[in-house]
Design a protein around this nucleic acid. Structure first.
Length: 269
DNA sequence: GTCCAGGGTCCCA
DNA sequence: TGGGACCCTGGA
């Protein structure tokens, strides 16, 4: 098995990035991780500044490179943030976190599932969703499952979906899929609309409020200024910013600042 | 076994 | 604008 080797130039750590609550479909394997996104899957191993990827060079360059946001200059962004002492501390700890660019629909459904839920259970439900309604993908002899298509999820009734134990979120999943299938919500629109309008569109989906909308905008639609505020971020603002933070101070990269703070709050204390 | 809380949102007063 | 309900389970 041959691996494509990509030369990193700093500010990236595979494990930190995967483990920063943005994506839930990765699995420990042979000193690295199998990562599944949509219908794709690959095995990744990081050795220092070398990122090894089991997929072809073409696929790496056309998909995974942007998936891990590797062409963005994080060194410059860190420099921009360094005026803020709290952020400085967060960045030192979360030095290798990047904001991933994930599949829009997969990200939408995943973060609908995430609400009022803990990370181990989110992983479990998302994986169950894929195993039950996705298709098999072979990666290095391991069987993985693709994320279900819009059509499949939109045409499910809540009875069938109950096997994944998503609880009251099942109806939200179906509503989200239906609104995407009908064209009421389109990825193109969410990407191209300005931040406020894009957020308002997403919130038309039942079960999508401010937090989930911001996550989808940030991780699945390229709105890098989106700043999701969850319990950890709230805690961070309370404890480290005395309860007040104007997120505009990190403009236009609020989402990246948020991700550093999130990782620091969850893992660094 | 018991209890609390989890990368929230909706509904109703 | 605030507070309770909500499915279920991981972790203490």
């Amino acid at each position: 098995m041959s691996y494509f080797e990509y030369k990193l130039n700093g500010d990236f750590d595979l494990e930190q990035t995967l483990d920063s609550g943005q994506c839930f479909r990765y699995f420990d394997r042979d000193g690295g991780f199998i990562v599944v996104s949509g219908r794709r899957a690959a095995h990744f191993v990081q050795e220092g500044d070398c990122l090894k990827c089991s997929s072809s060079k073409d696929e790496f360059n056309s998909y995974w490179l942007d998936y891990f946001d590797l062409s963005r200059d994080y060194a410059a962004i860190k420099k921009q943030f360094s005026f803020d002492e709290v952020m400085k501390k967060s960045m030192e700890f979360a030095y290798g976190v990047r904001v991933m660019r994930q599949d829009f629909f997969e990200n939408l459904i995943t973060f609908i599932i995430s609400q009022q839920n803990n990370i181990p259970r989110i992983k479990k439900i998302v994986n169950s969703l894929c195993e039950n309604f996705g298709e098999k993908i072979d990666v290095m002899g391991d069987v993985m499952y693709s994320f279900p298509t819009v059509e499949v999820l939109a045409n499910l009734d809540s009875d069938k979906l109950s096997v994944i134990n998503a609880g009251y979120r099942a109806a939200y999943i179906i509503d989200g899929a239906k609104k995407v299938l009908s064209g009421e919500i389109t990825e193109e629109n969410i990407r191209n609309l300005d931040y406020e309008n894009a957020k308002a569109q997403l919130k038309k989906i039942n079960g999508v409020g401010d937090k989930v909308a911001n996550c989808v905008l940030l991780f699945g639609a390229g709105h890098i200024q989106a700043f999701p505020i969850d319990v950890w971020i709230k805690r961070g603002i309370d404890e480290m910013y005395n309860g007040v933070l104007d997120t505009e101070i990190f403009s236009p990269y609020g989402g990246i600042a948020q991700q550093y703070l999130f990782y620091y709050m969850r893992k660094g204390r």
